[in-house]
Design a protein around this nucleic acid. Structure first.
Lengths: 151, 151
DNA sequence: TTGACGTCTGACACCGGTGTCAGAGTCAAG
DNA sequence: CTTGACTCTGACACCGGTGTCAGACGTCAA
């Protein structure tokens, strides 16, 4: 096997430890692919201990954490933002973190508002185009009908 | 110079022909970079003849065409969609094209509506998170204040 | 022992318009 | 002839979560 990178703070546990999950089991419970779980770990969103054989070993709280990660991803937050606010969303280490997390969420909401406004602007611009083009189409239809009648 | 790919239907004109533009001039007039103009051509949105030396030579209608391309890009349409509806937007070859173009624009508007709805959904999901997290933050603040008073 | 399956790491692809670079050709001005 | 400004083509990078593959190792049952 290729040498395995080790993260700071992870523990190496007995293989087959009770009350813990391997990556396939966690994937099955959460609906996330193993690929995604490894990615979340790489991004610092999800902690995993290691078996003596190098396999990832997840605690029983992992499914809930993965659920939160995926909820937040589904809101359009990227992994940087999620890393910032996950400690508070988990019931984290108190005031400072929650303060920063609230700010992060509010920034993201403001950005979503801006994106919605931008899409609305695009929609209106497109509606103007549609109007012109429908007119042209209908003129062409009228011309075709006239040509048909005179023939 | 590297060998130059030739598109179908382009003409090779005298270098320095009057009433035409080289890529730098067109870029300056339209605000598009030369890189973008070459890309539009590659995507089949913009026609360019060639000088005997291989330089692109644009007709005097090119600035208007580039303007339309950039307007449509700014609405979020991709080059595939623009290729489909540009003939009609230019005052093109009649009924069939305009019919297809109208359909393309309406599809894009429907897709924009769907995207707006999706962003709104994300915003609401995020607002729920924000509510929970603000509560947690305020609880922490209250706890901190109590601890301060009792100390 | 062998085969099937799970897991490991690392790497590439995707989307799509644009920036940027490399290496080379063109051409007018000095 | 030299210099500098343009132009040519082709290629890589960007973003960011996910799919997928390759090559190797672990584990367990037949």
């Amino acid at each position: 096997m290729a040498p395995m990178a080790r993260s700071v703070g992870e523990r190496v546990v007995r293989a087959g430890a009770e009350g813990s999950l391997r990556i396939g089991e966690l994937a099955e419970r959460t609906g996330a692919s193993p690929r995604s779980l490894r990615y979340y770990e790489q991004q610092g969103l999800l902690r995993a201990d290691r078996d003596t054989n190098g396999y990832r070993r997840y605690g029983l709280d992992a499914p809930a954490t993965v659920g939160r990660i995926r909820e937040l991803l589904a809101t359009g937050l990227n992994t940087d933002a999620i890393r910032e606010l996950l400690p508070c969303a988990q019931g984290g280490p108190g005031l400072v973190f929650c303060d920063r997390s609230c700010s992060a969420v509010e920034r993201q909401m403001a950005q979503l508002d801006a994106e919605i406004a931008e899409l609305a602007r695009r929609r209106e611009a497109l509606a103007t185009y549609a109007h012109v083009m429908r007119q042209r189409r209908d003129e062409d239809r009228a011309l075709a009908a006239m040509a048909l009648r005179s023939a």
